[in-house]
Amino acid sequence: VSKEVQTPVINGFVVDMKTDTAVTINFEQSEWISGNSNYIIQLGFDSRFQAAYQGRRVDYPADFEIELTEPGQGEISFPASGFSQPIQSNIIVRNLTEEIDDFQFIFRDENKDAIFNDGDAIFMVVGDSLGKKATSFADVRISWSLTLIKDTTIVEANQRPPQYGDVFKIVTNKPFRNNEFMEFTTIGQRFDKSKAKNDLDKVAVVPNPYVGAASWEPYSTSVGRGERRIYFMHLPNECIIRIYTLSGKLVDTIEHKSTISDGQVGWDLVSKDGMDIAYGVYVYHIDAPGIGEKIGRFAIIK
């Protein structure tokens, strides 16, 4: 579920922002970012411990990295219950969203070997829903869990358990928080002379050839078949188009100015003297000041 917000117009543009309204695991982006273990990772909240942590769950809005270390080199786990003691682990949890390098966690070491492996679970923990550190099990709140499960469909020889140095990233969908900000820069409009010169090759006349009785031309019962017209396409912002007969006689001149590149301009097939042009082949010359020139041909046929 998401909510869209649009800012007021600022310096000629607006920003559309979409924020999530609920905190959930992003399963597509959560993955091993270091290592190639083929064990199954179960994310969310390990149901085996639902009763033990009843009423303590909180969907904490942060992304995490879980790094595995050599035995005994990880952080000390928070007590798993009110009757247990902190235990050694080979786990380091980092809260990426709030830049906390030693985030608290509970290590459910089902194998009792102080190593995160098959059947074990890690729970992120906080002291309250705002992220305060927990000081005792009495005030602890339980968040996301990561459970490691051996894939029994893979033969033993091909099993790849996590190794020291492997890192798993948990990504969450979460609403914007207070004091969060986004920063971006814009690049002002600029003229790329080299690109503009190359773009002259895209200039074209359509239709070419122009068929004098084309069925798609506008038709009017009062004036006949309607206005005859061709179009010069993909023009630079400013240019002068000169149209000549094959013998070099100037037929017409068109001055084109637009606020955008890749523009177009139409020509009604009427000469500068106000006469309908004859059928035949014509040459056009495009002069774009500061950019270059383009010469081409088009045909007018019956």
Rank of each mutant, 00 (worst) to 15 (best):
Y284L: 04
R141E: 06
I76Y: 13
I291N: 02
V9N: 13
V9G: 06
R56D: 06
D59V: 10
F107R: 04
I286V: 06
K193N: 08
Y284M: 07
F105L: 04
Q159S: 05
G292L: 03
K193S: 12
I142L: 03
Y282R: 00
E156H: 04
S89K: 00
S222A: 12
P61M: 02
W144T: 03
T21H: 11
G82H: 05
T152C: 02
L130R: 15
D59S: 13
F137C: 07
G280Y: 01
Y279H: 14
V171G: 01
T186L: 12
W267G: 08
T253D: 06
R160W: 07
I240F: 00
S37A: 06
C239Y: 01
Q159N: 06
G131L: 02
L200W: 01
K112L: 15
S129C: 07
G72E: 09
P86I: 04
V14E: 15
N237I: 09
V206G: 12
P79F: 11
W267I: 07
A299V: 12
Q264P: 06
R242I: 07
E4G: 09
F27G: 12
F64Y: 14
E99W: 13
G188C: 03
G248I: 01
Y53P: 00
D287R: 03
K197M: 00
S37Y: 01
D46R: 10
I87P: 11
S261K: 14
I149W: 11
T7Y: 01
V1E: 15
G131R: 01
T185F: 12
F184R: 01
N178G: 10
K202A: 11
G226F: 03
E99D: 14
F27Q: 14
V140K: 09
L200T: 06
N90Q: 05
A138G: 03
Q54D: 12
T147C: 03
Y60K: 08
E99K: 15
S222H: 11
G224Q: 07
I87K: 11
A138K: 14
S129T: 14
D109V: 02
I170G: 05
M233F: 14
F83H: 11
Y231P: 02
P162A: 01
Q54V: 05
V5C: 03
D101S: 13
D192G: 11
N11K: 10
R108Y: 14
S81L: 03
I187Q: 14
